[in-house]
Design a binder for these strands. Structure first.
Lengths: 153, 153
DNA sequence: AGGCTTATATAAGATCCTGATCGATCGCGT
DNA sequence: ACGCGATCGATCAGGATCTTATATAAGCCT
């Protein structure tokens, strides 16, 4: 069978267009060299902790889509490097709460600003109308992400 | 020093807002479960070949930001699985051109459609104005990605 | 208390990446 | 033609990071 399976569309926003644009963008964006040599998962965990506060190992493993042992090892490495801390959960003796440290927070932010620096000259080359179009879409994109993270559990 | 390093801004599009929105979105999007268990790099290579046509190993290694030996191995695995083919470059006896096969194209497309299916119900919950805002920004986003991939070599 | 469930850790193995290095081929100046 | 540095791709050894299976400890329920 060669017929392309068609996903139903909204008349105001084609899902295929969205995924294609995002993937084009990400192919460039994800590969941006980072100052520190930290894996994608590592940075994502730091980001999640920085924005969402302390989390259990199990919960992190779910949101980051890696196995629980994989996350235990990752947290062990992060703790060794002083980017996070394990603290007991006062409400559950089995659980551990992973806290981000100031150092970890700074690393996440450094990467963030680093990417901004890469993007800036590109943005300068867009037309004002293109810049406004992107700016106008950002709140909606963030809301989409929020809806996604709520659903996915 | 605790002062946040400030990246200069455009008055119509704040770079920090952009990176924040993109990263919020990606935290959800990248982690979407995929039908096939293929690494991010693998899928990116298939995507690059599907959209850009046959490429040399060296060229792919550059665009995918991995080492040349790493790419040689990746292509070997992809070839073993029938997703790409190595063919000699008629214009250069040293070079090899990596071609995507129909099977490889289908895999890339399947993941694409899969992500569309995940996104669709979320999009349905946005307001029409939000959907229009995103739709209006997509061409500019793609252009930004294009500028980035040009610059990065 | 006994037995099941949940949270984390450990162990062993697979996957995939990097740096160093090699043989083959190309392009160029002579 | 000819030889030399540069480029292309392959191989190998080593290491990082993930997965599955299993162990240990704490909570929960009857």
């Amino acid at each position: 069978m060669t017929s392309t399976q068609r996903v139903p569309l909204h008349d105001d926003l084609d899902v295929g267009d969205l995924t294609k644009a995002i993937e084009n963008f990400n192919r460039y964006y994800i590969r941006l060299p980072t100052v520190q040599k930290l894996s994608f998962t590592t940075l994502s965990v730091l980001d999640t902790l920085a924005h969402g506060g302390p989390k259990r190992l199990t919960e992190l493993a779910r949101t980051e889509q890696i196995s629980q042992p994989g996350l235990t090892q990752l947290v062990t490495r992060l703790e060794r490097d002083g980017l996070v801390e394990r603290r007991p959960d006062p409400t559950d003796g089995r659980a551990v709460l992973v806290h981000i440290t100031d150092r970890g927070r700074r690393i996440g932010q450094a990467r963030h600003e680093d990417r901004g620096r890469h993007l800036l000259p590109l943005i300068a080359r867009l037309t004002p109308a293109e810049r406004r179009a992107i700016a106008a879409a950002l709140p909606a994109l963030s809301r989409l992400a929020e809806l996604g993270s709520q659903t996915g559990r």
